[in-house]
C-alpha cells in the first residue's frame, strides 16, 4: 500500500507551456466551454513550443511544480514546419536534465494541443494530474528516479 498522499501530492501542481496562437486559444476554449480541469493548473504562453528552454522546465520542477506539460504547436505551427520534431528535442533534453537532477522524467509531458482542442486539453490535464498524484504519493524510494 502506498502511504496516503501528503502536501503537494494530494493536488499536484501543473505548469503548462502553451503557445500564443495555437494551444492558448485551445485552452481558452476549454474555459469558454466551461469544461473542468484541475484548478492547480497554470499556464505560461510563449510564441512557439520549439522555443521553450529545457532549463525552464527544470526550474519549474525545482520551484515546486509537480509536473510540466508542453502544449505543443504540432503540425499547425506557423513558424517552423518541423515544430513537432523540434519540440520533441526540447522535451528530450529537458527529460535528461530532470533525470540528471534526480527528478522523474515522467514529470514532463508533451502533446499537441490545437486551437480548438479544448476537450483534449481538459482530458490531458485530468490524466496528467492523476498520474502525477500517483507518482508523488509513491513510496519514498521509488520517487523521482
Amino acid at each position: 500500500m502506498s502511504p496516503p498522499p501528503t502536501g503537494r501530492a494530494a493536488d499536484p501542481r501543473i505548469l503548462v507551456f502553451s503557445t500564443n496562437t495555437i494551444s492558448d486559444p485551445g485552452i481558452d476554449l476549454a474555459g469558454s466551454a466551461h469544461m473542468h480541469y484541475p484548478v492547480s493548473t497554470v499556464v505560461i504562453s510563449v510564441p512557439c513550443s520549439s522555443g521553450i528552454k529545457p532549463s525552464w522546465i527544470l526550474h519549474a520542477v525545482e520551484a515546486g511544480f509537480d509536473g510540466v506539460f508542453v502544449a505543443a504547436d504540432g503540425t499547425d505551427c506557423a513558424y517552423v514546419q518541423d515544430c513537432t520534431a523540434r519540440t520533441g528535442r526540447v522535451v528530450e533534453a529537458a527529460q535528461q536534465l530532470l533525470r540528471g537532477h534526480g527528478h522523474d522524467p515522467r514529470r514532463l509531458k508533451m502533446a499537441a494541443v490545437c486551437s480548438v482542442c479544448a476537450e483534449s486539453f481538459a482530458s490531458h490535464m485530468e490524466k496528467f494530474h492523476t498520474a502525477l498524484a500517483a507518482l508523488t504519493s509513491a513510496p519514498e524510494g521509488m520517487r523521482d528516479g
Partner: peptide, 20 residues
C-alpha cells in the same frame, strides 16, 4: 520572453506551492 522573465513568472506562479 527572456530567460529572466519566464523564470520570474515560474517563481511567481510557484510561490504558493513552495510555501504549501
Amino acid at each position: 520572453y527572456s530567460d529572466r522573465e519566464i523564470k520570474g513568472m515560474i517563481d511567481a506562479l510557484a510561490k504558493e506551492a513552495v510555501h504549501a
